[in-house]
Simulated assay, not measured.
Amino acid sequence: MTATDETRQALERQRTIEITTTGRRSGQPRRTETWRYRAGGRYWLTGSPGSRDWYANVLAHPEFTLHLADQDFQARARPVTDPDERALVFGEIVLTLDWAESLESWIAGSPLVEIELLG
């Protein structure tokens, strides 16, 4: 089994995950708990509309560490800014969240990055 297969299996089991990003200004590691989502057969990091430090960090330093099942995996964030792709991904994610605000508010104001597994 490759590290990528192992990572995918761990991502399937865990919705709440921890990531370590590199601080955009400090350059120091920043560990954050967040949720991962699945849409279109891929894995995503996002959150309800608003700014997020982890998002600002991955914009500056796209590589980060996923902490899953007591193991660490390397990943890269692919920020999604294209409005059509955002609508497609959020259309799938927001439908699964009974607490979510409107789809339009997520498209307009939520961070969205695809988790690209390394190794």
Rank of each mutant, 00 (worst) to 15 (best):
G40Q: 10
A100F: 01
T65M: 09
L95R: 15
L66Q: 06
A100L: 04
H61N: 15
R42F: 00
S110A: 14
E85N: 02
A60W: 02
A69L: 13
W99P: 04
P62H: 08
L95P: 12
L66R: 05
F90I: 13
R76M: 12
A77R: 08
W35T: 12
L66G: 06
G109H: 03
S102T: 15
A100S: 13
R86G: 02
I93V: 12
R31A: 07
F90P: 11
P83W: 01
P83V: 06
Y37W: 13
E33N: 11
Y55K: 10
V113H: 00
R42S: 12
Q74G: 15
I93H: 01
V89Q: 02
L97Y: 11
Q74I: 06
R52I: 03
T96E: 08
R78H: 10
E33C: 04
A39T: 11
E85K: 06
A108H: 03
G40V: 10
I93R: 03
I93M: 01
R52G: 03
L59W: 01
P83I: 04
A75C: 10
T32I: 14
T65W: 05
P83H: 01
W106I: 09
P29M: 07
T32S: 10
W106Y: 15
V94R: 07
I107F: 00
T65E: 14
P83D: 05
G40C: 06
A87M: 02
A39L: 05
I107A: 00
N57H: 11
T96G: 03
P29I: 11
R30Q: 14
L66D: 09
A60E: 08
T81S: 10
L112T: 06
P29R: 11
Q71A: 14
R78Y: 02
F73S: 12
V89D: 04
L68Y: 06
W106T: 12
R86L: 05
E101T: 15
F90E: 08
R31M: 12
A56R: 15
W106S: 08
H67F: 02
V94W: 00
G50D: 08
E104C: 01
W99Y: 15
S102W: 04
G50S: 11
E114S: 01
V94Y: 02
